[in-house]
């Protein structure tokens, strides 16, 4: 209960994507809402579920994403502003290209003062964000509970829906 007698605002998120770029939105929104004293819950399902593992290593791929800027996080300002037009035949076929692209994006985030996914997840835990892992996805992908952080609850759709029923904002990410 807030001091003026009303209940706090509530944010309900569904995180379905496990790539480095798409891991950011749920954790950023949740930690910002947590900082504003909102109640927050995130339901991690399908490819979003591994984000609750003890060790996480989300990666990106430029494959199938023509909107991804291909910029270098080092060198002169002019060099960093070049958007490299790398042909699909290279991005799709060169072994290790995704690993390199992931490394460059992490470096770019760091240069711009963006927190890591691990740091943002830590911030969510600090503000009591509910982190709900999807039991069904866990069974389908063959994950076991002990691969996940202790703070993760494991539950199904009904648990999330009950939480989201009283939410002011619900987003599917």
């Amino acid at each position: 209960m807030m001091n003026n007698g009303t209940r706090p605002r509530r944010l309900a998120l569904i995180a379905t994507k496990g790539t480095l770029d798409w891991a950011y939105p749920p954790f950023i929104l949740a930690s910002a809402a947590g900082a504003m004293d909102w109640e927050v819950g995130i339901f991690f399902t399908f490819y979003g579920l591994p984000l609750l593992k003890k060790t996480i290593n989300p990666a990106i791929t430029p494959v199938g994403n023509p909107a991804m800027p291909m910029k270098m996080p080092f060198g002169s300002e002019r060099f960093q502003n070049i958007n490299w037009a790398i042909p699909n035949v290279i991005t799709h076929n060169i072994p290790g290209f995704d690993t390199m692209a992931t490394g460059l994006m992490k470096k770019m985030f760091k240069n711009k003062g963006v927190a890591t996914i691990e740091e943002l997840r830590e911030m969510c835990m600090e503000t009591d964000v509910r982190l709900i892992g999807c039991q069904m996805t866990m069974d389908v992908f063959g994950f076991s509970k002990d691969e996940f952080i202790d703070e993760a609850e494991v539950a199904g759709a009904a648990t999330f829906l009950e939480f989201a029923a009283d939410a002011d904002i619900s987003l599917f990410i």
């Binding site: 950023i28 947590g34 900082a35 711009k112 943002l120």
Partner: peptide, 14 residues
């Protein structure tokens, strides 16, 4: 200084 969203919000709140 040097921090991006949502770090300033989080640190300020804390």
């Amino acid at each position: 200084r040097g921090m991006s969203c949502p770090m300033p919000v989080f640190k300020t709140s804390k």
